[in-house]
Structures are given as structure tokens and as C-alpha cells.
Amino acid sequence: MNASRIRPDAHPASMLAGRPEHSADSPLSVHAMTVAYQRKPVLWDVDYDAPRDALVAIVGPNGAGKSTFIRACLGLVPRVSGVVEFWGRPLREVRRRIGYVPQREAVDWDFPVSALDVVCMGRYARIGWMRPVSRADRDAGAACLDRVGLRGFEHRQISQLSGGQQQRVFLARALAQESDLYFMDEPFAGVDAATERAIVDVLRELRASGRTVICVHHDLQTVPRYFDAVMLMNMRVVASGPVGTVFTPENLQRTYGGRLTLLAEASEAVARAERG
């Protein structure tokens, strides 16, 4: 028997005493999630409730389990234990309401598809099994490409796009999913300034229309500027909540340990956020 077969989300049995009451409208609530590789935990007893209509940054040192957290929420890596609920319901009931933007390196960019093909992939769940991609879906995909500033790139093969454009294609694909909750894994990694602005615009647009976006983010400097809430994570949740109250030098020290350069950088960012 394989431990990964156990689907903790299907069994409220493992809910524990002392579990806080989750409101059914929290887009994501995670309870007692443990992910382990052999005896090494990657995530250990993680509890988290995401706020509504917010941009949330997941911040933590390398190897803190940030990407694993996202992937475990989406059922892409097996969990040893834990409950994950979206709006109070298990993943399989709400799959269509959840969008996912993996790391750019996760796919083969030499794959024989065009930018529009990739964007339309975001609509596959909506289209369903064995139905072809319709004209309406392609139009919707083209509109999403337009929203991220890539009009005219529809038929480019994806390897002929720059890194920033590739990231924007991924973003357009997320838009095409028309989800209520988005997980994004390092959307700002290695992009140019124009793309960074485009991504921030899209994120704000999503928030304005009542969506929640949870991003793995590596740049402490920009956390206060881009995000409303933050989850500091190092195998466990060190602290989570609004940026103003949680994103403090003390909490960062508890997350990153004695990495002084990072701390200096972060407290500078905090100070700047407080000033302006």
C-alpha cells in the first residue's frame, strides 16, 4: 500500500481537536499538512487560511517548501497528512475555480505549440474531455494575450519568445482559466521591467475583480509594494497575515535566520513601505 494513495482531503476524520473554525468562504484553508520525503519533512504541520480578494506572497528561504506547498495544495505531490479545502470544499469539487502558473523552467519551451495554443490550454478544463478547442475559446485566448500586451504574438512558436514574454504567456493562460483562486510559482523570476509591470497590473486587476492570488515570491524588496498579505514560511508557517503587521524584521529573522544581508535588505524595504 502506498501512502500517497491516502487522500486526506476525502476524510474529515483526520481533523483534529483544537482546529480553528474555518469560514467556508476562505478561498484556501490548509490544516496540519505534512509532506515528507522519506523521513525528511518538507512541510511539517502547516496551517494556513488565505484571505479573500487579496494578493498573497509566500516568502521564505531556499528549500523552505514554498513550491511544494503550492503543489501539495493542488494535489500534485502526495501529502502524508493534512486537509486542504477551497471555499470549504475538497479540491476535486472546485478544480475549475483554481488556476495554476508553474515555474517557467517547469516546461519545455521548444515544444511545438504557439503562444495561443498555450493560452488556450487554460480553457481545457472548461472545454472538457474529447472536445476540440472552439473558435470562441481561441478568441478568448487571444483576448487574454492582448491583456498581457502580447497582441500579434498569437502564432509565434513559444521558443521564439523572450523570457519575459514567455512568463506573460503563462499569465495569459492563467487569465484564460477564469479562476477565482490562482497559485503562481515565482511569476517574477528573471523577467524584465516591462513584464514585471504587466504582471503587477494583471494581479491588481484580478484582485479588483474579487480574485485571490497566492504567489511564491523571492524578492523581499517588492513584497510591501506588490502584495496585501504575506505568508512567511520555513518548513512551517512562521507568520502570516497582512503585510503591514507580519512583514517585520523580527519575523523575517525568524524565517531566514542570521542571513544578515537579507535582513538589512528587508528592513530597508519595510522602512520604505512605512514611509510611503
Binding site: 511539517w44 529573522q253 525568524r254
Partner: peptide
């Protein structure tokens, strides 16, 4: 001990 702890934790 955030900087070293994760590599030591043993379930």
C-alpha cells in the same frame, strides 16, 4: 535556527 534547522528536522 532558521538557517540550518530545515536540514536537521527528522520526523
Amino acid at each position: 535556527h532558521a538557517e540550518v534547522a530545515p536540514s536537521h528536522v527528522d520526523i
